[in-house]
Simulated scan of single mutants.
Amino acid sequence: MDNRTRFVLYARKSSEREDRQIQSIDDQINYWQKRAKEEGIEIVKIYTEEKSAKTPGRRIEFYTMCDDLEKWHIDGVLCWKLDRLSRNPVDTGTIQYMLQRGKLKCIITSDRVYYPEDSWLIFSVETGMANQYILDLSKNSKRGLQSKLERWHFPGMAVQWYLNDRINRTIISDPERFDMVKKMWEMLLSGCYSPQKILETATYKWGYLSLKRKKTGGKPLALCTLYDIFRNPFYAGYMRYNGQLKKWDHPPMITWEEFQKAQKLFWHTKWESDLKTERPSTLEFSYTWIIVCGECGCMVTAEKKTKILQITKKEKSYTYYHCTHKKNSPIFQCLQKWGVPEWAIESQIKEILESIEIHPEFFDWAKGVLQRRHGEETQGRESIFESINKAIENEEKKKN
């Protein structure tokens, strides 16, 4: 080779299956640096990338290299194999057109050299084989996933709070976090806690950390992740696949009815998902969601009035409930225009409760349900306690 030849080096390795046997980027660079020294090649710039080449428009370094080749006087490109440059017809055409116009004098791979005067049929066949490999791999992967589904083998990594059973090829619950997260669902379904409040409780009171994996996990949940989890039907025993819901055999965390209730809460409740925006303070009243107007059937709302007593000069607050008049129209007008004080409503509720007699069988059944829920609550608190202790131990290890 002429000592004045100037080349750029493009080294790429994808993390996807087609590149498992390809040498690492460092190995590719070391190979070409050693060979360039032996053959008198000057490597002007090295471009490295860890992205798949099957889809055009995704590789920033590749397109930067193409722009540099148009502007600079470069003799050629060094790469491990031709499929390192491209695995799709769009990028292949870009490289092939540069070679055809003489912008590149040659492309050197580890086993051969491509010149502008060579047969374009050979170049097209080799790049076409790389593209066809991707297409076949995609078909085989989809066929494999469908086959797994038909055999009830879970086709991927388990979602948060579940684990992959590699022996039976199915999904099992995470014994360390399952009960704790079930408590999060219960808080959501109660309608009294927003996802942000649930996240704060889990992070700062329970010390929750996600499952530690090789490269990810071991950290508190993000709010956007918690929103995605609460919208995922997987926790109700269903899995989304190809736009359809499929009933799965993993242990569900909640029932399908509870999942639908959670989605209604998301639809009707104005929870603020943006942490940077503070919502205005709102008042909570005891009976606004359980009382309707006896005349028109609309929900009842409440107002809090504050009055300064003339004798003591102290403030005293009163709460009044009244109809929202949502159904008022030119045809119908609700006549309930005056508010009812809270003490009057509580007096009526007390009279109703005192008139109710509990049947002994129902009492025994309710007592059993409460005992069972108490046991589940105790188990959940034990799980939270273990998580907190583990977090403390990890912090002590870091300090030591």
Rank of each mutant, 00 (worst) to 15 (best):
N3G: 04
T5C: 03
L9P: 08
A11V: 07
K13N: 10
S14H: 03
S14T: 04
E16T: 13
R17W: 01
E18D: 13
D19E: 07
I22E: 11
S24T: 07
S24M: 09
I25T: 04
I25D: 02
D26W: 03
R35L: 12
E38F: 14
E39S: 04
I41N: 08
E42V: 08
T48R: 11
K54I: 09
K54D: 12
P56W: 05
G57M: 11
D67Q: 00
K71F: 05
W72F: 05
G93Y: 14
I95F: 10
R101N: 15
I107R: 11
T109Q: 02
V113N: 01
Y115F: 14
E117A: 03
I122A: 04
V125A: 00
A130F: 00
Q132V: 01
I134R: 05
K139R: 14
R143M: 04
K148M: 15
R151G: 07
P155T: 10
Q160H: 12
W161P: 07
W161V: 15
W161K: 12
Y162M: 00
N164T: 00
D165A: 04
I171K: 03
I172N: 11
I172M: 01
D174Y: 10
D174G: 00
F178K: 09
K182L: 09
M184Q: 09
W185L: 02
L188Q: 09
S190D: 02
S190P: 04
S194E: 03
L199K: 08
G207W: 00
Y208K: 06
L209W: 05
K212Y: 01
K214I: 02
T216C: 06
L223H: 11
C224S: 15
C224A: 14
L226R: 06
I229E: 05
G237W: 02
L245A: 02
D249M: 13
D249F: 12
P251T: 10
I254K: 08
T255S: 12
Q260N: 13
A262E: 08
Q263H: 07
L283I: 07
E284H: 15
F285D: 07
E295W: 02
C296V: 00
C298N: 15
M299N: 15
T301K: 10
A302I: 10
A302F: 03
E303H: 12
Q310V: 13
T312P: 04
K314T: 00
H325N: 11
K327I: 07
N328A: 03
S329R: 01
F332N: 07
L335Y: 05
Q336T: 02
Q348N: 03
I349S: 08
I349W: 04
S355P: 03
I356H: 01
H359I: 02
F363N: 03
D364N: 05
R372Q: 06
H374Q: 09
E376R: 06
E377K: 10
R381V: 12
E382R: 14
N389S: 14
I392A: 12
E396W: 06
K399A: 06
N400W: 10
